[in-house]
Structures are given as structure tokens and as C-alpha cells.
Amino acid sequence: MTRPVTVETITERMKEFGVVEQVRKNRIRVKTVPDRIHDAITTSQAMLGFDRLITISTVDNGETLELLYHLIGSHRIIISLSIELPRDKPVTPTVSDLLLPAGIYERQIHDLFGITFEGNPNMKKIILNEDWPGDEFPLRKDWTPGPDVFYGGIRVEKREGS
């Protein structure tokens, strides 16, 4: 790509993926759909020079779970690609094949929000302890610890004088 990447060229290029808005100087937000996130990242990588993933943020919006992929390139413009997933079936394709560091963030989100990333080969528990119940996701807004659930650690029944 010979033309320098500016906010305008990015807006022009990313329009096909959804609503593009410039949030502030050097920050662009694109609202897209889960099916197109793979293409959106491929495009921004190949055409617009976004080569680095800062992080994947997750927000619980109540009815939906929102994922934001923040990418940056050598032009120092940040693009945030946002997708929303239904709460009862939060499944989205993985992007760890495009951006290697994403694998870590995806596993972390899987643990804390219960979002499944299809195609991530290593979707194991990483952040919570071994005994944590598999169907409870602590960072969801409606989660509260159950009174009779064992969340790991040590069960202390009675302390002997040891």
C-alpha cells in the first residue's frame, strides 16, 4: 500500500463491515457482526497495516456480551472492532489464527465470561482454579456466588490445634 494510512482511508475501507465512527483523534470504532470479524481483521491487517493486537475487551451489556478487538499499527491509529453476541449462545470464531496473542485473551475471556471461541485449539481453563464450577462465569453481571457451591480452596470444617 503506497498511500499513507489516515483516519479517512480507514473509514473508507472499513465501511463495508458496519458502522464506522471516529471516537476521538486516532481512535476509530467499527461496529460489525460476528460472522464478519474474521474478514474485518484480515482486511485491517493486510490493507491498513494494523499488525498488533492490543487487547480483546469484553463487556456484559445485559442482553448481549460485547467483544472489542483493539488493533494498532505503525501509523499509531487504534481501531476497535466491536461485535455483540447473544447471551444464551455466546459463540464466535477464533481470531488466534490471524493474531497469535489473541489465543491467550480468548482463553481468559472463555473462563470469565463463558464465550466460546470456535477453532481455538486450546480452550481449557486457565485463570480460575481447578475446582471452580465450569458453568459459572464470575465477570457476568448477574453472577453472584451461590451459598452452597464449592468454589475451590480448602474446606475448613473444624480446626484442630495443629
Partner: peptide, 15 residues
Amino acid sequence: TSRLTVVNRVDKVGR
């Protein structure tokens, strides 16, 4: 950090 496990294969793919 306190977040992750990285399993790294011989083919150098970070997971």
C-alpha cells in the same frame, strides 16, 4: 497477570 497458561508446541505456535 495471573491469567493464563501458554502451551507452546515445537512448531512454535503460541496458544
